[in-house]
Amino acid sequence: MKIIALSGALRRASYNTALLRAAIAMAPEGVTMELRTLHGIPLYDGDVEAQGIPEAVTTLREDIRAADALLIGTPEYNNSIPGVLKNGIDWLSRPSGEGARLFGGRPTALIGATPGGFGTVQSQDALLSVLRTLGCDFWMAGRLMVSRAGAVFDAEGRLVDDKVHAQLQAFVEGFVAFVQKRCQP
């Protein structure tokens, strides 16, 4: 099984990228999780699209298409989806109809980390609406929202909070079981 772990943040020291790296390290035997970012994807512009889909978008699209599932790590900016993540999803859904082909029926889950006290609940809720529109097979049995992320990771981005570690381990195991059930012939 292959899962793409997509970070919705660009910052090198992103808590969400760190959370995805921790999830990758917890992947059970037989499961490959590969980290992807949105670096290199330009702001969506229909004039740019008319000249062709940018290579960074095409590469990410093919990586997602070749995977069995998608795990998205989303920050929360101003109580919603970060612009870079929404922009990336908008590009991945172009040209018209591509979103349904790429995301339709794809097992998908969300996690998120933020320095604030409410986790990424509003970002995840807003993103759920977008993913539902694209037809993702969203795993509803679990979401992970990490609050006060500055205390959960050390200066090198390693997960150091035992409670969050256990929650993430249970999340990864649950999502993998969901994907396995969906991918059985």
Results as ranks from 00 to 15, higher is better:
Lys2Cys: 00
Ile4Gln: 14
Ser7Arg: 15
Ser7Asp: 06
Gly8Ala: 05
Gly8Cys: 06
Arg11Thr: 09
Ser14Asp: 10
Tyr15Gln: 13
Leu19Pro: 06
Leu20Gly: 03
Arg21Asp: 08
Ala22Asp: 12
Ile24Leu: 12
Ile24His: 13
Ala25Trp: 11
Met26Phe: 04
Val31Ala: 02
Met33Leu: 02
Arg36Val: 06
Ile41His: 15
Pro42Leu: 10
Leu43Ala: 09
Leu43His: 12
Asp45Cys: 08
Glu49Asn: 01
Glu49Cys: 03
Ala50Asp: 07
Gly52Asp: 02
Ile53Val: 13
Ile53Lys: 15
Ala56Pro: 14
Thr58Trp: 11
Thr59Phe: 06
Leu60Gly: 10
Leu60Glu: 12
Arg61Val: 06
Glu62Asp: 14
Glu62Ser: 13
Ile64Trp: 07
Ala66His: 12
Gly73Thr: 04
Gly73Asp: 03
Thr74Ser: 14
Glu76Asn: 01
Glu76Ile: 00
Asn79Arg: 12
Ser80Arg: 01
Ile81Thr: 03
Gly83Asn: 13
Lys86Cys: 04
Gly88Asp: 00
Arg94Val: 10
Ser96Pro: 05
Gly97Pro: 08
Gly99His: 02
Arg101Pro: 02
Gly104Pro: 03
Gly105Arg: 05
Ala109Arg: 02
Leu110Ala: 01
Gly112Glu: 08
Ala113Asn: 12
Thr114Asp: 09
Pro115Thr: 04
Pro115Met: 15
Gly116Lys: 04
Gly117Ala: 04
Ala126Tyr: 09
Leu128Gln: 06
Leu128Thr: 07
Ser129Arg: 07
Val130Glu: 14
Leu131Val: 13
Cys136Tyr: 00
Met140Gly: 03
Ala141Glu: 06
Ala141Phe: 02
Arg143Val: 00
Leu144His: 00
Met145Phe: 00
Val146Ser: 15
Val146Asp: 11
Val146Phe: 12
Val146His: 11
Ser147Lys: 07
Arg148Ser: 10
Arg148Thr: 08
Ala149Leu: 08
Phe153Ser: 15
Phe153Tyr: 11
Glu156Asn: 11
Arg158Thr: 13
Leu159Asp: 03
Val160Pro: 02
Lys163Trp: 09
Lys163Leu: 10
Ala166Leu: 10
Leu168Met: 15
Leu168Cys: 06
Gln169Val: 01
Phe171Asp: 06
Val172Lys: 07
Val172Trp: 14
Gly174Met: 04
Ala177Met: 03
Val179Thr: 14
Gln180Glu: 14
Arg182Val: 09
Arg182Trp: 05
Pro185Lys: 14
